[in-house]
Nucleic acid binder design. Structure first.
Lengths: 145, 145
DNA sequence: CTTAGTGCAAATGTTTTGCACAATG
DNA sequence: CATTGTGCAAAACATTTGCACTAAG
């Protein structure tokens, strides 16, 4: 199962505080679970929580270091965060509507390892994002324009 | 051959101006050809050129749209640019010393196409960056620390 | 109580924009 | 000469930091 608890926070040397719990909860149950710091902040505001934007940034960074969330930098210079899952995955992003699909391809992973090894690198991680137009009709139409 | 000319600028609807030529020339012959806007700006300053930082940003963005340079956003939220080559390539970045290696793997490319198609996407581009530690002795040592 | 966490405001670093002036075709 | 490009300064963003105050263990 992939739900983080107070224990996970403590294990990371983080006190269990209201802002951290709220942010964690928000990320766990967000349907579109790719959120920018600003997104998280606005969502908290809407829920009537009194958390500062600076705290959101601090907490997200701490969560990242603790392996609780992953940070992604897509094409725009803006970081988005998502709850870390057990299974690693990469992303497919629609240039038109921004839809994000997660995928995992074992063959690609293996080839990446091979490439790194060929160049004498010890692979530590990678970032693979595919950009394109999804099959949504509006997005398809925008191509022919 | 992969050298851009005044013709390429005109074809892109850009007038041939001194700043554009200087930036183009700089990117073409830079040995470490991955430069941030700031890098480009500083290099121009050192050559005694009088170009504003804003112009560097504008020109690089125009060049990107014209397909003359490619923009990459590596882990840090900072854009780096490089002259577009005929052959597409991805990057292998050393987390320790920042060394950047370019590679191209046809198998990975093909698999990306397949993944996109499987999800109903028309692939427009992708970003693949492998992070790790290179075989430089200092970088290797830093692991065992 | 002692330490870590927070909100706020101010600072930072990168990139963009407005505008009067300069250069290109 | 009409248009596009430029430098400069100011604005706009995303993110970080300093600090006095608050809450957690």
């Amino acid at each position: 199962m992939s739900s983080f608890t107070n224990q996970d926070l403590r294990r990371a040397g983080l006190k269990v505080t209201l802002p951290r719990l709220k942010i964690l909860e928000l990320l766990e149950k967000a349907e579109s679970h790719h959120m920018s710091a600003e997104d998280v902040y606005k969502a908290l505001m809407e829920h009537g929580e009194d958390v500062g934007l600076a705290t959101v940034y601090r907490v997200l960074t701490q969560f990242e270091q603790a392996g609780i969330v992953e940070r992604h930098n897509f094409e725009n210079n803006l970081s988005v965060f998502e709850i870390a899952k057990d299974e690693h995955h990469d992303h497919l992003v629609c240039d038109q509507c921004g839809k994000i699909i997660e995928f995992h391809n074992e063959e690609i992973e293996a080839l990446q390892e091979k490439v790194a090894k060929d160049f004498g690198f010890t692979l530590a991680g990678h970032s693979l994002v595919l950009y394109g137009i999804c099959d949504n009709k509006d997005c398809q139409n925008s191509i022919k324009r």
